[in-house]
């Protein structure tokens, strides 16, 4: 589904990605983990074509993404910080994205699930962080694309919305979609992810199931397994 070969990226003097090779197969939830600044968002943005890699090849559904924009019809993306044009109303934003991507009817049910009806006529600039994130989720999930990329989807969500989000993820997974997630909430990752991709210093350090990670690090719980990798690296 997504194939990354020898990806390099440097921002100024900061060498972020150092030859990433990653192959993500169709179907399942993949969690991209790593400490702050390890290059998670850069990988995601490279897949989306927002960051132009210095070197390396990215293929989505067997097509190179270089100088291509049509492939993004296959990807739904939830950005890390929901920055929306502030003088647009929620309604108008949804309408606009539909206009750009094609029509869909899923938005109505999603709006209901996340109880966004009272906010539809409000300007995005006046919404709270959590509500913005809900709008963000609606925009991401309302299309039925085979690949979902979620960058820190849990930010600012209240517990009820978090449950709804997990349900949504389960439903999408059962449709056979490929879902990429980054998160720092380990309990969330453990609950939803099938496979872990651990990035350290711009390289893939580990890829496999949570169980495999536990045996590799000889730790009983997931959080400690991750911490184990990090402390070993520091030592």
């Amino acid at each position: 589904m997504v194939e990354i070969t020898d990806l390099h990226k440097t921002f100024g003097k900061n060498n972020v990605l150092n030859g990433v090779n990653l192959n993500i197969n169709e179907g399942g939830v993949f969690a991209i983990l790593g400490p702050n600044g390890s290059g998670k968002t850069t990988i995601i943005k490279s897949i989306l074509g927002m960051v132009i890699p210095d070197n390396g090849l990215i293929k989505v559904c067997d097509v190179s993404i270089k100088n291509n924009s049509i492939y993004r019809h296959k990807i739904d993306y939830l950005p890390q910080i929901a920055n929306f044009p502030s003088n647009l109303k929620v309604n108008e934003l949804i309408k606009m994205i539909k206009d750009l991507r094609g029509d869909t009817h899923h938005d109505k049910t999603l709006i209901k699930t996340f109880k966004l009806e009272p906010f539809l006529d409000k300007k995005l600039g006046t919404l709270s962080g959590g509500t913005k994130q809900k709008v963000n989720i609606v925009l991401t999930f309302m299309f039925n694309s085979p690949i979902l990329i979620l960058d820190e989807p849990t930010t600012g969500l209240d517990p009820i919305s978090l449950i709804h989000l997990k349900e949504l993820l389960k439903a999408e997974k059962s449709k056979g979609k490929t879902i990429l997630i980054t998160s720092h909430i380990m309990s969330f990752v453990e609950e939803v992810a099938d496979e872990i991709v651990f990035i350290l210093e711009g390289k893939i350090y580990f890829k496999g199931s949570i169980a495999k990670l536990k045996t590799k690090t000889k730790q009983k719980d997931f959080e400690h397994a991750i911490a184990n990798i990090l402390t070993k690296e520091d030592a």
Binding site: P85, L100, R101
Partner: peptide, 16 residues
């Protein structure tokens, strides 16, 4: 001021 709008658009199937 339209930086956010631009970032939103960049993730859509539109060319730069």
């Amino acid at each position: 001021s339209s930086k956010e709008f631009t970032e939103l658009l960049l993730a859509q199937p539109l060319n730069r």
